[in-house]
Every structure is written in structure tokens, then in C-alpha cells.
Design a protein around this nucleic acid. Structure first.
Length: 320
DNA sequence: AAACAGCTCAACCGCAGACGG
DNA sequence: CCCGTCTGCGGTTGAGCTGTT
């Protein structure tokens, strides 16, 4: 007898996730936490299988994910770990906080493998190749390198796309915040400094002008927002062409993510949404949510007034 | 401007291991 | 120990994007 499929295949949606689906999933997990993936789609009102939901969450929506290309250090670490562990991507990923096995696997296949081959190293055995490419004329090697650098720069555009996902998570939380107390927050530069936890330097900033969870900037919406507008940069490839922002608030703000690298334009008010430490685990968030409120309140790092609070005090506030 | 080729990476598939009854 | 269920993992695919001609 064949194994039962992981889910009823009939009637289930496949392919890229839409912003609406992302929103549902995020909202559900914020409210109920991660448990029983098989039940998630039903409860969240998604026409997906649980597996797909889990994958979408772990590989793309989780707020503690780093985004953007792997830094030099991370790349080196991946190579070292691969030499020790082989294709055990999840094990390798466990050594790189904020990175998923899928991401590392993709990066390995598209970048590192080529680099190693170019260096005359067999990416499988980590030993010198028989026919050593280092015998190639220098000019040829330079060509290769240029091409790689090119691909880096183009991938920064791809990295840019990923921001919309973080935006999306932001939006859900901020919506919750506004629903809860009807207040908006204001940016506080000194506070933003204190919120920064992540080691941004570890990023390959020459390649990608982003992005760590702690580096997510959120514009503070006016409290009486009803109309909608958005930056033109809400494309979200993985989400399958999101106009999520258009459905959301923040009308009077310039979400100037369109041109990356200048997201810290001084005229707009931004706050950091959250930092790594707070989202190692969602459970603290969810466990303390009053079921009747359904939506969780703001994360401390999301609230200008709360950034200095520890988790417990923040959750205590939540349930009030 | 259009056609084509190459590349990237989100998402899928199937298998294996863990776990509980 | 067996069986069924669920989750996690690694390999693979293909849509969409970018660069080149």
C-alpha cells in the first residue's frame, strides 16, 4: 500500500503564496503559535497543506530570519561545516542563526559550489580537483570573478524583494497594535540605537544593503489612517506579487524602500520593529495572549515606549 | 524592443525518523 | 514490536527575473 499523501491533494492550492495567504498564516501563528501543522491550514482558513504552511513559515515568514546574501564569514562557515557534515543542511543551518537550510542549500548550489570549483576545489570532497582551474589564464579567472560580482549585484535586487515579507509581518503586528489601543508610536532615535542588537557588521553590506530582523524599519502610521497607498516596491516575488501594503494602512508615509540603501531617510519616521532576541521563539508571545483579544499586541521593540521592557513585563502588559 | 539564455530561489516532492497508541 | 501519523530533511523543479544579443 502506498503511503498516505501528506494532505488531501484535491482542492489545495499550490505554487507561490499570495499576500493574503501570508497574512492569514502570520496572523494565525501570532495568535496560536506553532503547533500541529496539519491543522494550521484548516484553522487559518488556508487552502494549503500543513507542510506547505510550515515551509512557508520556516523559510520565509519567520521574523527572526536574516535576509540577503550570506556574508563572507557565513560563507566560510558554511564551507567549513559542509566539509565536516556534508549535505546536512539543517545541521549547517543550525550554526547560522537566522538562516534556513533551504537558503543555505540554495546558496551553496548557486554560489559557493561555483566559487570552490573556480578555486580548483571539489565542492563534494573539499579536495583539489584533478584538473585545476587555477591553471587557467588569469584573465579568464578575472572574467569569472567579474561575472560573480555581477550576479551579486543583481541578487541585491532579489534581496530587495524580500523586504516586502518583513513588511508584511510588520504590518500584521502593527495592525494588532493599533486595534488594541488605537495609538500610534513615534520614532525615537536614541531608542532605536538601543534596540539594535544584531551584529550588522557581519553582513556582506557591500553586496546587499540590508537586512536583519533588527534592521527592519517601520514607518509609524498616524492613528487615524483609513485610506491606503503604498510604495511601488511591494512586489514580493515569493508571495506571488503582493499588494499587501495596498490593503493596509500607513497612507501618509513614504515607504521609500523602493531604492534600497536609503531607507533611513531622515524625513520619514521609522522605528525598528523587533530585534533578534525577542523572536528566537514566538511562544512567549502567544502564550501570553488573552484568547479573547485574538490578535497579539505590539512587540516591545515595535513600541517606542516599550523597547526597554523585558519579555515578561511586555507580555504582562499585553494581557492587561 | 524583442528574443533568448542563464541564473536565482521559493516551493514542491518523497523519504526517513520520531513518536504515541 | 507494529502501525499510523506527523514533522523534518535533502533533492529537485520551474516561474520569474536579469543580462545579453
Amino acid at each position: 500500500m502506498g503511503r498516505q499523501p501528506c494532505c488531501e491533494k484535491v482542492g489545495l492550492k499550490k505554487g507561490p503564496w499570495t499576500a493574503e495567504e501570508d497574512k492569514k498564516l502570520i496572523t494565525f501563528i501570532l495568535t496560536h503559535g506553532q503547533c500541529c501543522w496539519r491543522a494550521v491550514p484548516k484553522l487559518a482558513g488556508l487552502l494549503r497543506c500543513g507542510k506547505s504552511c510550515r515551509l512557508r513559515w520556516t523559510n520565509y515568514l519567520r521574523p527572526d530570519l536574516k535576509r540577503g546574501l550570506l556574508s563572507e564569514q557565513e560563507e566560510k562557515l558554511v564551507v567549513d561545516l559542509h566539509a565536516q557534515l556534508g549535505n546536512r543542511w539543517s545541521k549547517i543551518a543550525s550554526h547560522l542563526p537566522g538562516r534556513t537550510d533551504n537558503e543555505i542549500k540554495n546558496h551553496w548550489n548557486t554560489h559557493i559550489k561555483k566559487k570552490l570549483k573556480k578555486m580548483g576545489i571539489d565542492p563534494v570532497t573539499h579536495k583539489p580537483l584533478v584538473s585545476n582551474p587555477s591553471d587557467q589564464p588569469q584573465s579568464l579567472q578575472n572574467n569569472h570573478q567579474q561575472k560573480d560580482e555581477q550576479s551579486c549585484s543583481t541578487s541585491s535586487a532579489n534581496a530587495a524583494k524580500t523586504r516586502s515579507v518583513n513588511d508584511l509581518v510588520d504590518s500584521v503586528v502593527i495592525n494588532a497594535k493599533e486595534e488594541e489601543d488605537g495609538t500610534s508610536c513615534t520614532a525615537n532615535a536614541s531608542m532605536l540605537d538601543t534596540i539594535q542588537v544584531m551584529d550588522i557588521d557581519s553582513f556582506c553590506t557591500d553586496e546587499v544593503p540590508l537586512i536583519g530582523p533588527s534592521d527592519i524599519l517601520v514607518a509609524c502610521p498616524p492613528s487615524s489612517s483609513t485610506s491606503s497607498s503604498s510604495s511601488s516596491h511591494n512586489n514580493s516575488c515569493g508571495g506571488g506579487g503582493s499588494n499587501f501594503f495596498q490593503e493596509l494602512q500607513f497612507p501618509d508615509l513614504d515607504w521609500s524602500y523602493g531604492d534600497f540603501g536609503d531607507h533611513n531617510d531622515g524625513d520619514n519616521q521609522h522605528i525598528k520593529l523587533w530585534d533578534d532576541d525577542h523572536f528566537i521563539n514566538w511562544d512567549f508571545l502567544v502564550d501570553n495572549v488573552d484568547d479573547k483579544t485574538q490578535m497579539v499586541g505590539p512587540h516591545p521593540a515595535n513600541s517606542c515606549q516599550r523597547s526597554a521592557l523585558d519579555q515578561s513585563s511586555w507580555t504582562n502588559e499585553l494581557v492587561k
